[in-house]
C-alpha cells in the first residue's frame, strides 16, 4: 500500500551531512517525507540512523547539505524551536524524566502549549491510546518498566501535537508482546494523520508497518522503496532480516 503523495514533502533532506568532530557519521543523505506517511529507516548499528534523526530533531546540526520542513529551511534552528514547529522526537532509550511523575512527564510534552482545555482533552486521548499509562499517573517515572516508559515517552511526544513524529528504536530492550503493542500504537498515531519517521533495528516488524522505507549503511542511503518491496528484497533480507540467502 504505497502511499504516494504528489504534493511537496513536509520534510526534505538533500545531501545532508553530520559530523562528530572529524568523524563524519552521515555522509550525504537524501530523504523525503510526505504528509501522513509512516516511513522507516533501517540499517545496522553505526549506520547513522540515530544521527540522522537527531539532526532532524535539532539536537545535532548539519555540517553540510540542506534540510527543509514545510518548504522552509530549518538548518541551524535549535531543538526547542523545532518542537514548536511540530517536530517531536522520542529519543533512543526513551529519555524519560525518571525523577518526575508520569503525569509530569506527559505535561512536559505540552510545555510549549497554552491552550489548557485542549491539553486536558489531549491528556484524555493519550489515556485512551495508552491505558497502562493512566494507571501509573502519580508514580515516579523511573519506577516504570521499560515498556511503560516507552508508552510514556510516546504519549509525551504526542502531547506536543506533532505534525512529524520521530521515533528512535522504540522496540529496544522490550519483550516481543510489548513491541507489538507499541507498533500498533504507532500505527494508530499515523492513521490519525501524524507523519512518522521510525528508526528500527527490528527491520522485519518496522517494514511490515511502513508505507516506505530507507536502508542506511555507512552514513548513506543504500536502498529505498515501499515497505513491502524491501521486505521481499533479497539483499535486504540477507543483510538486515537475518536470513541466509
Amino acid at each position: 500500500m504505497p502511499h504516494t503523495n504528489p504534493a511537496s514533502p513536509i520534510l526534505q533532506l538533500r545531501g545532508a551531512q553530520v559530523a562528530y568532530g572529524q568523524i563524519q557519521a552521515v555522509k550525504g543523505v537524501d530523504l523525503d517525507l510526505f504528509a501522513g506517511e509512516l516511513v522507516s529507516l533501517i540499517g545496522a548499528n553505526g549506520a547513522g540512523k540515530t544521527t540522522t534523526l537527531n539532526a532532524i530533531a535539532g539536537t545535532l546540526q548539519l555540517s553540510g547539505g540542506s534540510m527543509s520542513y514545510g518548504g522552509d529551511s530549518i538548518a541551524g534552528l535549535p531543538a526547542h524551536k523545532r518542537l514548536r514547529a511540530g517536530i517531536a522526537l522520542v529519543p533512543e532509550g526513551r529519555g524519560i524524566f525518571t525523577r518526575l511523575t508520569v503525569e509530569e512527564n506527559l505535561r512536559m510534552g505540552a510545555y510549549t502549549r497554552k491552550d489548557k482545555a485542549e491539553i486536558e482533552a489531549d491528556m484524555q486521548r493519550v489515556y485512551e491510546l495508552l491505558p497502562r499509562v493512566k494507571e501509573r499517573l502519580q508514580q515516579v517515572a523511573g519506577t516504570l518498566s521499560g515498556g511503560e516508559q516507552q508508552m510514556v515517552a510516546i504519549g509525551r511526544a504526542l502531547l506536543s501535537r506533532p505534525k512529524l513524529l520521530l521515533l528512535d528504536e522504540p522496540s529496544m530492550g522490550l519483550a516481543p508482546l510489548i513491541v507489538e503493542k507499541i507498533f500498533e500504537v504507532i500505527h494508530t498515531v499515523m492513521k490519525q494523520g501524524v507523519t512518522v519517521l521510525l528508526v528500527e533495528q527490528n527491520a522485519n516488524l518496522a517494514l511490515g508497518y511502513s508505507n516506505r522505507a530507507y536502508v542506511m549503511d555507512g552514513g548513506k542511503i543504500t536502498i529505498s522503496g515501499s515497505g513491502q518491496e524491501l521486505l521481499h528484497d533479497p539483499k535486504v533480507r540477507e543483510a538486515y532480516l537475518g536470513e541466509i540467502a
Binding site: H80, P91, G95, F97, T98, T112
Partner: peptide
C-alpha cells in the same frame, strides 16, 4: 508551576528537555 517542572526536567536531562521545547 510549568517553569518549575521545566527546571526539574532540565536538571535531569538538558537534551531531552530541549526536545520538549524547553529553551534550556
Amino acid at each position: 508551576t510549568n517553569m518549575g517542572r521545566a527546571m526539574r526536567a532540565t536538571a535531569e536531562n538538558h537534551r531531552v528537555a530541549s526536545l520538549m521545547g524547553v529553551d534550556t
